[in-house]
Simulated scan of single mutants.
Amino acid sequence: DIRLLRQIVRTHLNLEMAATDEMVAIALEIKPDYVTLVPEKREEVTTEGGLNITGQIPRIGRFIDQLQGAGIPVSLFIDAEPVQIRASQKLQVKFIELHTGRYAEARDEATRKKELDSLAMGCKQAISVGLRVNAGHGLTYRNVYPVACIPGIEELNIGHSIISQAVLVGMEKAVREMKQAISR
């Protein structure tokens, strides 16, 4: 599928992948426009949190060097924690993607606000150290707008919600509806 996507995607192709030798080899062959390194366990249905890079800087740094050395910018999918942002800066990646899962799963308004504030602070810190910022995970038509309003976030990665809606209304309408939810 990824080989076909590389041929037909007209915007930019972001390959979300685990930090493994096998996946780096595929990325080096396919040459996506950028890659996002994410935590991945075989038994997971979806990503359960941000990549903890602080304890594995040498290992992840090796993959980043290979990819960026081949002209493929790297993003790290991380939680909006100062230590993770500093580690991302140290690794000299181009982007980070802030994990919005805790915000999306918040059960009450106070928790949701706390998580949104954390995302905003993380974004501000990342930009201050020269990182570009994307965000995603668990975003829906109902919760995306406040995240979209965070200054400095360049891209929102939303998949499941759009695809689920597309089953009912078609892809074009589902995307149009998400764009409306983002710009409200």
Rank of each mutant, 00 (worst) to 15 (best):
I57E: 13
R10V: 14
R62C: 05
R42W: 04
Q89K: 14
Q7D: 09
A104V: 12
L5C: 13
R42V: 08
S88K: 01
R42F: 06
V24E: 01
E172P: 06
D65E: 15
E40G: 01
K31D: 02
H137Q: 08
G138C: 15
N14K: 09
A80R: 00
P82N: 11
M23A: 09
L5S: 05
I85V: 13
Q84P: 01
L119C: 00
V129H: 02
V129R: 06
G152A: 09
K41S: 12
T46H: 09
F77N: 03
V38S: 07
P82L: 04
V45M: 03
T54D: 07
V147E: 04
V24G: 00
A18R: 04
I26G: 01
F63W: 14
S118R: 05
A18P: 07
Q89I: 01
E105S: 11
N134G: 01
V35Y: 15
L67M: 12
E22N: 02
T11C: 06
T54S: 05
V45N: 00
R62D: 01
H99D: 14
V147Y: 04
H160D: 07
Q165H: 14
I158S: 03
Y145K: 11
L15M: 14
N134Y: 11
A166H: 04
L51C: 10
D1L: 02
Y103Q: 10
Q84E: 15
E155D: 04
S75C: 13
Q165G: 01
E43I: 08
S118M: 02
E177I: 10
I150R: 00
E44V: 10
H99C: 05
K173I: 05
Q89A: 15
V38D: 00
D65F: 05
L4F: 15
F63K: 14
I182P: 02
G170E: 08
Y145F: 13
Y103S: 07
A27Y: 11
I153Q: 08
K90M: 15
A135D: 09
G122W: 04
G152K: 01
S183Q: 15
G136I: 07
G122Y: 08
I2F: 10
E40W: 04
I162H: 05
K173C: 10
T46M: 07
A25I: 09
V74P: 02
V45E: 03
I85M: 03
N143I: 05
E155T: 04
E154N: 07
Q68N: 05
G136V: 12
G170P: 08
H160Q: 11
Y145P: 01
Y34Q: 08
C123R: 02
G130Y: 12
K90G: 13
E48K: 00
A110K: 12
E29C: 07
Y34M: 14
K173Y: 03
A135W: 07
